[in-house]
Amino acid sequence: MMALRTLQKRFSMALLDRTREVPSGIRTAGLDRIDRRFDVYRNNVFVGLTEALVTRFPVCHALVGDEFFRAMARVFIELSPPRSPVLMTYGDDFANFVDTFPPAHPVPYLGDVARLESALTRAYHAADAAPLTVDELASLAPCRWEQIHVELHPSVQVATSVYPIVSIWEAHVRTDDHPVIDSSRAEDALVVRPDLEVEVHRLPPGAATFLTALLKGASLRTAADVAMTDPRFDLITTLSGVLAVRIIVGIRSSRE
C-alpha cells in the first residue's frame, strides 16, 4: 500500500506536468484507459485556472485572442501554479510573466495592461474605507501643507507605462466608441474603489511618482519633491485631481 503522502505527491506532479506518467495504483472500471480518466483531473486543473485568468484579464484576452491567451495561460500555470486556495489573488504575478514570455513581445504593452487589470481585482477586494468629504479636506487649509501626511484609500494602486494603457483598456471596456489610440503616448493609471465601483483614472505626468511616494508614507512635501524631478509635474493639477477622485481617507500632520 502506498503511503497517502507519496500517492498525493505523485498525483500532484503528474497533474501539473503532462510529460509525467500517471501514478501507479490507480484503477478504473471496465475497459477504460487510466490515462484518459486521469486527464479529466488534468483538464479540471488547467481549465479552471485558465478560466480564472480569462476572467481576471479580459482586456489582455481580447488583445491577443482566445487561442493565444489560453496557450500563454497554460505556460504560466505550469510555471506558477497557485500557492493559495484563495484564487482571487491568482495571477498577481501574471504581468511579470507576460513581460518575459517571448511570444507576447509583438504586443509590447501586454504586460503593462496585465498589471493594470491585476490592480483592478486587488482594488475590488481591498479593505473598505470612507473617503474624506470636501469639508473634511478643507480642514487641511489652516495646516502647513508640507507637514501633511495623507492616508490613501486601501484600494489605491498606481500602474505606470510607456504605452497608453488607459486608452487601450478603455477602448476594450467601452464598446460604444473606438477612438484611434496614439500608441507612442505614455500613460499612467490610478486605480481606486472609493465605494462599490472600481475606477481607472489617467494620471498627469509625474503624478504616479507623487502617489507612489504617498503610498510609501511620505509627507505631501516629500512626495512633491520626489515628483518634481519630472519637470512636467504640476503639483496644483495633481492635487486637485487627487482631491476630486476621493482617494484620501485620512489626514494627519507630522507635528502631531
Partner: peptide, 8 residues
Amino acid sequence: HDNLYLND
C-alpha cells in the same frame, strides 16, 4: 500538496 493549490 506541499504549497501548491491544485484547484480541483
